[in-house]
Nucleic acid binder design. Structure first.
Lengths: 207, 207
DNA sequence: TTCTTCATGTAATTAGTTACATGATTGA
DNA sequence: TCAATCATGTAACTAATTACATGAAGAA
């Protein structure tokens, strides 16, 4: 039996959840969908693999429960797991990494039509609206004291504010960009520059 | 010889660059560092692989140039490549995907110390500052009409505004969060909720 | 009783990263 | 002429995704 592969940020994300309380794998996938996935998105199947690694490292234990005929696995953190988490928090941690395909397309809008660019902007706007719907419910629940894990409110506030402002940023950016693109000619390759907006953007970068 | 694997967003990112002008692979890596990498970050080595795939698909051609004793490869887009790009622009495109390890850590700050959390916030602040330095230069160059590819200014304006506002968001968020965390007790697990800030966050999600 | 959705997991594939290697160029 | 940096590329590895499979529970 070889040594298990090194822990990744994804491992620590799951270990962090286990430090709150024990979860079954399926419950972990739900949490990823809702909370952790907003800042560390991963596919479901990962969440069935990573806990096994945690167990191999001695940072978690697995318990099998019966649900009808089939079984499910519930994971719990160990004291060694808590030690590992504390060590992780002492390390720097990476800044935001953004992947934004729609922005990539707009960046090369001259190879598509103006209508394509407008559709892309509309999709980005919708994305922000959809994300904000659940986000708003969560924020309101917390504000009225009805959120889950009320003792974790101070931490959730930090996350909630960032995401709230991020969704807002996307929506406001799309609203700002749409009239600009509407003013383009049919062929974006022939679009002219908006000097005022370029100057304004430079001004906003000056802080 | 089997059919080459399907094109990914990364393929189209590179194809988009080739549509602007031919580039050597190394030049492509520079562009990724500077421009495209801000919204579609990929490792250098990818940029040596993907163009080969484009050639296999007939979307680009490779030409070998001599540089002293060694050779370098310069890639150009084909008419089929331009057609493929146009088709790509007609498809929806994904919304922003954010990976933010520092935020993940703060989200579970109760498993570290208050000092850890403050260090993480400071690192996020620095990250935003560093990104903004180059970003500001680019914005100012464009605003004064000295940017590269001046005919692409309208597109670059859309990207530039988003990134400018994003870096600003990170910095302002860190500035907002720091005094909150400073007010925590030594052990973040014992921190109390700031009801006013929770209410304000809910308000900001209301649009 | 059948259909749908919830719940649980595995297998195959791949996109992407890290690490390595080395020639060319330039400036001290 | 040596060191450092720029430039060019390959190989090995793995984290992550997509696709698949199937049992349980509840609704119609």
């Amino acid at each position: 039996m070889s040594t298990p592969s090194a822990l990744t940020t994804t491992s620590y994300a799951i270990l962090s959840l286990l430090a709150v309380r024990p979860w079954s794998t399926y419950e972990l996938t739900r949490q990823m969908d809702r909370s952790v996935g907003r800042m560390w998105p991963r596919a479901q199947s990962k969440l069935y693999e990573e806990p096994k690694k945690l167990v191999a490292h001695g940072l978690a234990t697995a318990r099998s429960e019966a649900v009808g005929q089939r079984s499910r696995t519930v994971y719990s953190i160990t004291p060694e797991g808590r030690t590992a988490l504390a060590a992780w928090h002492r390390e720097p941690g990476g800044g935001p990494v953004l992947e934004f395909e729609q922005l990539l397309k707009l960046s090369f809008a001259e190879h598509g039509s103006r209508a394509d660019a407008l559709a892309t902007l509309a999709a980005a706007r919708r994305w922000a609206e959809e994300r904000n719907v659940e986000n708003r419910s969560a924020a309101e629940a917390y504000a009225s004291g009805n959120g889950p894990f009320p003792d974790r409110l101070p931490q959730n506030l930090l996350v909630g504010r960032f995401l709230t402002d991020f969704y807002r940023l996307v929506a406001e950016w799309a609203d700002w960009a749409t009239p600009l693109v509407e003013a383009w000619p049919e062929d974006p390759a022939a679009a002219g520059a908006d000097a005022a907006q370029a100057a304004e953007t430079a001004r906003r970068a000056d802080w």
